[in-house]
Nucleic acid binder design. Sequence first.
DNA 1: CAGAATCCCGTTGGATACTG
DNA 2: CAGTATCCAACGGGATTCTG
Lengths: 139, 139
Amino acid sequence: MPDPDLRRELRALPETDPAIDRLVEQIIGRVADKWTMLLIEILTEHDCCRFGELARLCPGISQKMLTQTLRALECDGLVTRTVYPVVPPRVEYRLTDLGLGLAKAFCGVWLWAEANRERIEAARAAYAAGRDPVTPPGS
Amino acid sequence: MPDPDLRRELRALPETDPAIDRLVEQIIGRVADKWTMLLIEILTEHDCCRFGELARLCPGISQKMLTQTLRALECDGLVTRTVYPVVPPRVEYRLTDLGLGLAKAFCGVWLWAEANRERIEAARAAYAAGRDPVTPPGS
DNA sequence: CAGAATCCCGTTGGATACTG
DNA sequence: CAGTATCCAACGGGATTCTG
């Protein structure tokens, strides 16, 4: 039986105007994205990055998604984009305070995932083992 | 200029075995999903729900995504699925302690989104209104 | 160097119909 | 009631090419 105190604590949260909720959900949906999270983490560690640096630090991201994700972050006020009018072009990205606040908020989830990784893996193994969609051979 | 103390605090986090990181990222990716978050929130408030209840409490979700998301949650050990052998069928879903822990971890993001909603909306408005495509010279 | 534009394919996810 | 199965449209996102 799940801990009733924790549950009560969660329910006591400042819930919540339904109209506001929709907006908050939208923000969550925009921010709870693979590349967004990785870029925020990278920018937390390297407080100032050029476009190419980010591409190198974020293995596997395509240039399209990098641009797209950075634009969204800039639009939401989570990163600043500074263009230096030189040639060749130099553009620097940096987390704002707002972005840094999000990074901190997401730490909780990150830490939870790390702390409970083994339990989750165990649960998955049990789940996979527990279902026999087909009769095992050897009858 | 972003707060340097907060930045240092974030960098001091227990980072991080690269192999583990991949797994953690995978967990994040699985869990940082629209329907997953909504269902966890609903199950935090209603500690026990039937399938149809969840469908009603989660407006807009299709039955396919509801089933799929619940299966994933069950697989990861975040919810329990209890089948009562009666007719018509009765199936109940309930958060586990693990799931409750995730709900708590995500609260930080939720609260951040609520607390900074206005700043984000303002940033978006500013972004839409006028971007200085180039650094403003002395014009 | 930092992107914009184009093409294209795989996955996601909704709608619908059927079943135990 | 609580699903499974099938079809299909939309979108995400990778690879490539072009530009200031």
